[in-house]
Amino acid sequence: MTTQKKNPVRDLMRNPLAQILLFTAVMALLQVLSSAGLISSSFVYALGNTMIYAVIAIGFCLLLGYSGLASLGTAGFIGLGAYAAFYVIQEFGLPYTVAFLVTLAVSIVIGVVVGFISLRIEGIYLAILTLGLAEIIRNLLMVIKSTVKIDLSNVKLFGIQIGDREAYFLVLVTLAVLMWLLSNLINSPTGRAMLAMKNSTSAAQAMGISLMKYRLLAFVISTVFAAIGGLLYMMFVRNMTTATSTLLTLSTSLNILGAVIIGGAKSPWGTTFGVFIIYGIQSMFLSKIPFFVKNPAFITMVTGVLIILVVMFFPGGFAQIFAQFTGWVRTKLRKGAAA
């Protein structure tokens, strides 16, 4: 029996805050490298986009992985945030913080409504219902205004003029903060209460967990995250033609669902990784193959195949693959040290 040596590096890496700071540093470095001309700017643009999806996906991770509630309405909630940003910033000329607060308020209201519905309807029916709701939202938004476009030329945040680079950092910092809040929540009584609710509603209730409170909370949080995603999208990409954009359609909701499943529904980091796989493969790899460029519908097929493979062989997603791999490496190392 070897005594467990204190390993400060490993202990540090297990701290969620350190993980988040490291992630932020790497992402910031990539942007800096791109400014210096070492990395193509389209790569960094794709990264920024992917991080926006990561914001949306980690919120969904809490809903699906922890609370066990299925929703296909993510895209609609993204739309709420995007339109709130457009009206507040572009039409009324108000600052970003106001847009943020409005997005928050709108998404909380919608989250509460859907949460109440989830108390009556469960499982696949809830998914269908949220899908319908998202379509209603999308069509409403399309009727209200078919194209939304934000001009950032006089939008400032904390006195800083927002351009491409600032928008990238805005996305990055938002993702980091939300990731921190979420991982704190997961590792607290709230996260455990949600898991209890997912596993057994009767046991959860017997132990004093109010289904109403935690279902509402799960829906509110995931809706807020999705709407913030929409807001960030408007800050980063800045325009969206609702009729032709796929952002507010079912395919986005499915991609997010896919990312959460592939990455590991109970791990925000796994989920982020899943988003990078799904959107990264799309924007960096598949978009360069002529066949997929001609038939974009087949891109979804790749995602589908990935989901099938993961669900069949690694139901815990990439988080599970990673854990198994590190475990395997560790035993190999230990054997090597013993020999």
Binding site: S188, P189, R192, A193, A196, N199, M207, I209
Partner: peptide
């Protein structure tokens, strides 16, 4: 009705859910 996705200790912490007073 044990929470299968949680460790034994965490199962007990869930049972102690109402012992916590900290808010969200």
């Amino acid at each position: 009705e044990v929470i299968r996705e949680l460790s034994v200790l965490d199962n007990l912490l869930v049972a102690g859910h109402r012992q916590y007073t900290s808010n969200l």
